[in-house]
Simulated assay, not measured.
Amino acid sequence: MKIILMRHGQAEDETRPDSARQLTDFGQQQAARTAQYITANYTLDYLVVSPYTRAQQTLAQLQSRAIDVPVKIQNNITPADDAHTALATLATIDAECLVVVCHMSIVAYIASLLTGDSPESFALAEARIFEMEFVMTGMATEIDRFVPIQP
């Protein structure tokens, strides 16, 4: 199985509540580039996204390229959530190639749980691809990553 962890693209300044922040035009471009890379190289069968606006907008770039792939909004993958709880929820999803669109710092902590390595920050709209037999702490290997052009 593969889990692709993706951070949202560049978001506007904090003039709105964090959950309502939108992608900038550049953030939309970043998300589109990463979505293009993911869909060109992997066959997706399930998409999971944070309820926050900027993550939803990032996911929309994937959905435009993977039209029939089911989507689930997962409420426990927002910036302040617990990575252990989030990973336990992700482990219940039956998928061969699962994409998770969320935020720093939870995305870095989920990645570190998958591999057993120390957390490493994700760039904006970065995607990292992990392969494993089953979802369990320390059982994954990072096999690929893509970072779109940064500001």
Rank of each mutant, 00 (worst) to 15 (best):
M6I: 13
M6C: 10
M6A: 06
R7I: 05
H8R: 07
H8S: 08
Q10M: 11
A11D: 03
E14Q: 12
T15C: 00
P17K: 12
P17L: 13
D18V: 10
R21I: 02
Q22L: 12
Q22E: 15
L23F: 08
L23N: 08
T24N: 04
D25A: 15
F26G: 02
G27T: 09
G27E: 05
Q29K: 15
Q30M: 07
A32R: 14
R33P: 00
A35N: 09
A35P: 03
Y37H: 13
I38W: 09
I38D: 06
T39A: 11
T39I: 01
A40V: 01
N41F: 01
Y42G: 02
T43R: 14
T43K: 13
L44W: 05
L44S: 08
D45P: 03
D45E: 03
L47W: 05
L47A: 09
S50C: 07
P51S: 05
P51T: 04
P51M: 09
Y52P: 02
T53Q: 15
R54G: 09
R54S: 09
A55S: 15
L59W: 06
Q61M: 14
Q61N: 13
L62R: 12
S64G: 00
A66V: 12
A66W: 05
A66N: 07
A66M: 10
I67S: 14
P70F: 11
P70Q: 08
P70C: 10
K72Y: 13
I73E: 14
I73R: 12
N75V: 03
N76P: 00
I77G: 08
P79V: 00
A83H: 07
A83R: 10
T85F: 12
A86C: 07
A86L: 11
A86Y: 11
A86D: 10
L90H: 11
A91W: 02
A91N: 12
T92G: 05
I93N: 07
D94Y: 06
D94E: 15
A95E: 05
C97W: 01
C97K: 05
L98W: 01
V100W: 05
V101S: 06
C102Y: 09
M104P: 00
M104A: 14
V107Q: 00
V107R: 03
V107T: 13
Y109D: 14
Y109F: 14
Y109W: 13
I110P: 10
I110Q: 08
I110S: 08
L113Y: 07
L113C: 06
L113I: 15
T115N: 04
G116L: 05
G116Y: 06
D117R: 12
P119T: 11
P119D: 11
F122W: 04
F122E: 02
A123G: 03
A123N: 12
A125R: 11
A125D: 05
A127W: 08
R128N: 04
R128W: 00
R128Y: 00
I129Q: 03
I129K: 07
F130D: 00
F130V: 02
F130S: 01
M132E: 00
M132D: 01
E133G: 12
E133N: 13
E133S: 10
V135P: 06
T137I: 12
T137E: 15
G138V: 03
G138H: 02
G138D: 07
G138S: 04
I143E: 09
R145Q: 14
F146N: 05
P148K: 08
P148L: 07
